[in-house]
Design a protein around this nucleic acid. Structure first.
Lengths: 232, 232
DNA sequence: TCTGGTGCTTGATAAAAGTCAATTGAAAAG
DNA sequence: CTTTTCAATTGACTTTTATCAAGCACCAGA
């Protein structure tokens, strides 16, 4: 493993507080793997053998049932994933695939559970990570239950613009079909929703979105910090 | 606080492994409170002052935005709630109200975070609790995204019958309107869905549900362990 | 330059879910 | 025993979302 990769992992809140010796145990047991675009890393229903840490690229999490499929989230580096399944040693509830060429550090689940029992700082970090993720999904569920797909899109645009520095314009970081699935809608409906937003000054040119009338968009979206604010 | 109440709290997985002295610190700082039916305990957006432990009764968790409201879950005793907000010292994402007359043990959030830092067994228990809850909501989100309301109802009936010992008949433990909101639908649609299920042998008489043809119901519901099995 | 592929868009239609209003029915209150 | 109340149901209608099919635009490779 390259030194810079180790440093990226060490810098994660999940690992930064733990004892040096324990971290080195984990890293020694782990290894790095590179994956091309659109490769399946994990399939829902399987047992986890490794805690995954995304160092480079991005990962899409999805789930499937009765022939239907939905995207639950995307992960950008750096970040650990499938922590809950590893901790509980239970089946994955989601599938994961690369959304671009990615580099992932794999740490044996057994080692994680082991160190978790011995390093209080690591245990605290795991708790914080889980608590944050938990709250993230509560927000997703509220988003899904309390809003129409048009409203979810409007709020996503506002939130993403915020994330990009409130420039009023940004490039969609994923395919539109992937965005549709992330927002819990079909690609056809995403197109129609963009067309509707054009009326209130949202300009869409290919993957570029421009907000011409933020007030109007916010009026439609009615953003709610308890759903949309990633810091809360 | 009555001795039996303390014992109920102590017996919770969340508290059973921790050091006696630490548990007594928590209990000494806490106190019991009784609430009548339909009383608001917490309102989303507020800061948590106490970890709540439900000893008796039941609690409904809901959320509201742009005038719409949805029920996210019910809690039966014994069980702790708002753990994530307490641990992170952040705002509630859900509101809680009693779904029947209830008894709740309140433990100051500060004390919980304090003991959490000093008792590794407690920290482990918190992690396990959070991980289980996290997975619970992932399943809720999948349920919402991948199924129609009729399918959610069919699966709820199967799961609840299972929980009641697979007797083929049970009484709905909450008002139908509450069940509708829990399943992410309107009461009117719940009625219509029950009427549809009558065609495949689901008999509904007031609050009593009888499954006359489990195979047919399962054929419609297509239960999926990665959504419906509470043990996974 | 042409060609095939792929992702996106558009249109027509159907299914799912929500809304509004009226009615039923059963339990609680007088 | 009657009246009141309120959850539950039913009907008519609208909105939202999905589905199916066709068309368009853009890029990669021949």
């Amino acid at each position: 493993m390259r030194v810079t990769d180790v440093e990226i992992v060490r810098a994660l809140p999940l690992f930064s507080g733990m004892q040096k010796a324990h971290f080195e145990t984990l890293i020694a047991a782990g290894y790095v793997q590179r994956f091309p675009h659109k490769v399946a890393l994990l399939h829902e229903g399987e047992k986890p053998n490794f805690l995954h840490v995304l160092v480079e690229g991005s990962i899409e999490f999805s789930s499937e049932s009765r022939g239907r499929e939905t995207t639950l989230s995307f992960l950008k580096p750096p970040g650990a994933f499938i922590l809950a399944a590893v901790i509980l040693d239970q089946l994955y509830l989601k599938s994961a695939r690369t959304a671009e060429a990615s580099m992932v550090v794999l740490i044996p689940a057994e080692a994680v559970r082991d160190v978790f029992d011995r390093d209080p700082a690591f245990a605290r970090a795991v708790v914080a990570e889980l608590a944050v993720r938990y709250r993230g999904i509560v927000k997703d569920l509220k988003n899904q239950r309390l809003r129409t797909s048009l409203e979810r899109l409007a709020n996503w645009i506002l939130a993403h613009d915020e994330e990009c520095g409130r420039l009023g314009s940004f490039t969609i970081p994923i395919e539109k079909r992937a965005l549709a699935h992330l927002l819990g809608m079909r690609p056809e409906n995403l197109s129609r929703s963009f067309a509707e937003l054009a009326d209130i000054g949202v300009e869409v040119r290919g993957p570029i979105i421009k907000i011409n009338d933020r007030a109007a968009l916010a009026e439609l979206a009615k953003p709610d910090p308890l759903i949309d604010d990633p810091r809360i």
